[in-house]
Write a protein that binds this DNA or RNA. Sequence first.
DNA 1: GCGTCCATGTAAATGGTTACATGATTAT
DNA 2: ATAATCATGTAACCATTTACATGGACGC
Lengths: 179, 179
Amino acid sequence: MDVKSLCLGVLALGDASGYEIKKQLEEGPLAYFYRAGFGSIYPALNKLSEEGLVTYTEMPQEGRPGKKVYSITEQGRAAFRKALRKKPGPDKIRSESMFMLFFAEFLEPERRRDVYEEYLSRFHSIIECMETVDLSEEMPGRRFAHELGLALYRSIADFMEANRDIILDGDPKAAVAAE
Amino acid sequence: MDVKSLCLGVLALGDASGYEIKKQLEEGPLAYFYRAGFGSIYPALNKLSEEGLVTYTEMPQEGRPGKKVYSITEQGRAAFRKALRKKPGPDKIRSESMFMLFFAEFLEPERRRDVYEEYLSRFHSIIECMETVDLSEEMPGRRFAHELGLALYRSIADFMEANRDIILDGDPKAAVAAE
DNA sequence: GCGTCCATGTAAATGGTTACATGATTAT
DNA sequence: ATAATCATGTAACCATTTACATGGACGC
C-alpha cells in the first residue's frame, strides 16, 4: 500500500491535481491513517501516468503555474481494485511523542510536562477541526473513517486529561497547584 | 527518531541482545507506537557500537548461536538524552485496513465484511493480551503507554462493534440475519 | 516587505523491508 | 515431520523524506 495506490484511490473518487490530492490527504478523513508529501506524490503520479493507469490534462491558469488534472483510467481502476483485494498488513504506527513519554523518567519534569501538554493540545486541535465538518452526505467509507478517527482522538484526549498524574508526578508546578 | 534511538532507549532500561530488543518491542507497551524488524535492529546495533554508544559481550551458549549482550555507554546515554530533547514530530500512521474500509464502496460486500471483522478481531486479540499483563511495578512511562494503548484499542473495538451498520449496510448476510 | 497559498518538480540522502543464509533445540 | 523459538547477519531493493529550485498573486 504505497503512495501510488493512495493516488489511485483518491482519483477513483474524482479528478484532481497532485496539489489537490495532498490537500485531501491533509484535510479529509484519510489524514488519520495515511500521509504523504509532495516528494512522493508527484513522482507517484508520473509513474502511474507512464503505466497508463492515469491520464492528465494540462490546465494553464492566469497568473498561476499550470496545473495538471489527473484522471484515473479503466486500467487504473482495475489496478486499484486489485490492490484492494490484497490482504491488509498490520498497522504501522510511529509516534515520537509517545516514545518520549514512554521514557518519561529520562526527561526533566518541566520538559516532560511540555511534551505532554503539547501532544494533548494537538489532539484538541484535531478534534475541534473534525467536529466542524459535516459528512452526512459523504459515502459510508469516508464517514466511517471520520467517525472512528474522532472517537479515537477523543479517547486519547480524555485519557490524557484524566491521567496526567501517571507521568507528571513530581512536577514542581503540579505540586504548587495542589497546595 | 530512528531505530538507533529506539535501541538506545531499550538499552537504557537494561542490557539486551538484538533478539531481546525485538521481543521487548513486540511484547512491551512500546509495540503500540513503534516497530522494527531484525533487518533494521542488527545494523543499528552495529553502527551504535562503531560510534561507541554501546558495547557488547559475546556470550557463547551450548547448542545455540552465541548471543551478543549489548550495554549502553555513558556517551550512549548522553546521545539518548539529546535525542529526547528534540521536538517530537507528528505521529505517523499507516493503516492498510483503514485504507480499505475508507474505500469500502469499491469492495464487494463479502470482502468488506471480511476486512472489517478481521481488523476488529485483531484488536480483540491485542486487548486480551494486554489485559493479562501486570504493570503495577513498572515505571510510570511504561504504565502510561500501556494504559493509553489499552484505552485506545478498546475505543476502536467498541466503535467498530457498535457501528457495523455504517459500512456493512447492504451486506446480504446482514440482511438475512435481520429477518 | 513578509508570509501564505497556489503549483510543479528533481536529486540526494535516509531509512527500512524483504529475502536469503545458517543452524541447533524443543514442542506438537 | 513440522513448526516455532532462539540467534545473528547481509545485500538488494524499495519507498520516503528533505532540501532545493521556480514564481506569481494576495492579504496584512
